[in-house]
Design a protein around this nucleic acid. Structure first.
Lengths: 224, 224
DNA sequence: GTCTATAAATCGATAGAC
DNA sequence: GTCTATCGATTTATAGAC
């Protein structure tokens, strides 16, 4: 209870991926004949649970999200959550898996020379966060990183891994690693305050304005 | 369970403030005579509980902290927590109360003209976080802000209130409020990654190095 | 003020029928 | 694969003795 629920911002993403399976528990009727290959129902239900888990964890964090709630969101029975994913911890770890979009976007933004790289990085980061298909996993990671060990570790890996790779050409020098971690700090801090804490007027400012101003801050560290 | 426990960083603060009361539940023996004024035991126990609550909430967040654990840390009975503070939520809200040091430090740092104000702000912020007497409340706020409504609201109030006041003279122009919220974002993001997520090498870098580099990023936004 | 005892609800996880 | 039923543990909160 008393969680930071953002009613509209993750709307649909889970249910949409779940498809029809979300509505009825038994989506696979006896009418479906099949000869070998994918067995009916299995994949849909499994994915529906994972999508629902991402949405629930993103909204309320690890502790406040019950498996019963995830099952209800997915439209399946609670025991199926255990059947497919074992423990709550195991399900959470899979819910933390990030779509590749973040790495793609940041790597692409890092190309193109040092001029304006700060603004490009901010713009790329915001575009991934504004994508409803990738937001739940990102939100889950950032929200839970403050409390949950595995989420914090995943956040560190993401920050150092993705950004170190993307900025390997742009940031050089003896303190390259330190400055890279500072760039990661700025991007994660931005997402935290804009999308999680909803700090105004930052949260409501349009993408261009944020990228222009905040990009100058990143630029100051990249081109030190 | 599975919380991000930082075994050494909040050590003592709670118990030290609790004093002798922490060791024995009944610190007030019948030996203490008194005529009017403060009744024995009451204040000590009350403060011991609040200090213990700050430490526990800072370590594990709201959900994962049980009232039993707080009582145990304070060395008192669990029912006393309810007796003094009512609900868990009420105790949490009081644990979120920040010491005035943050506002003092940031306001002082904002004085002295625009030159080097970014570095001074970072240095002031880090000095308050490195102070063991003020860290538990700050940690509680930042850690819980990701999940807990009231903590997020408190974080917003702190960010806009303290920084808007401190930077009222330094940041001018039409988008002053937006840039002020961006400075707040940078400082909170820095604390989050350095003290909560322990992102390396940022977490282990010495204060001067962080202030010098990261200060340039704040400077880019203050002096836009 | 302090303690014991317990109510009432919710949680993760399991067993077993179909 | 899916469901019902439930165990055992833990939680917040309260009631009442001293």
């Amino acid at each position: 209870m008393e969680s930071v629920s953002d009613t509209h911002e993750v709307t649909g993403s889970g249910r949409e991926q779940a498809g029809d399976t979300a509505g009825t528990a038994a989506a696979t009727g006896p009418a479906t004949k099949h000869a070998g290959g994918r067995r009916p129902g299995e994949t849909r239900t499994r994915e529906a649970i994972l999508s629902a888990a991402r949405v629930c964890f993103a909204e309320r964090g690890f502790d406040a999200t019950s498996l019963r709630r995830i099952a209800e969101t997915a439209g399946v029975d609670q025991s199926l959550v255990h059947h497919f994913y074992g423990t709550k911890e195991s399900l959470f770890l899979q819910a933390l898996e990030l779509p590749g979009k973040l790495e793609e976007a940041l790597t692409a933004a890092a190309r193109g020379g040092p001029d304006g790289i700060g603004e490009r990085l901010v713009r790329a980061h915001l575009s991934v966060w504004d994508d409803v298909s990738s937001r739940p996993a990102l939100m889950t990671m950032v929200r839970s990183a403050a409390i949950h060990r595995a989420a914090a570790a995943r956040l560190r890996e993401t920050a150092t891994g993705i950004l170190a790779h993307a900025l390997s050409g742009a940031i050089t020098g003896e303190d390259a690693k330190l400055r890279t971690s500072m760039v990661a700090t700025q991007l994660i801090g931005l997402a935290m305050m804009r999308y999680v804490a909803h700090l105004e007027p930052l949260a409501s400012a349009d993408t261009d304005t944020v990228a222009r101003h905040y990009g100058r801050a990143l630029q100051a560290i990249v081109a030190d």
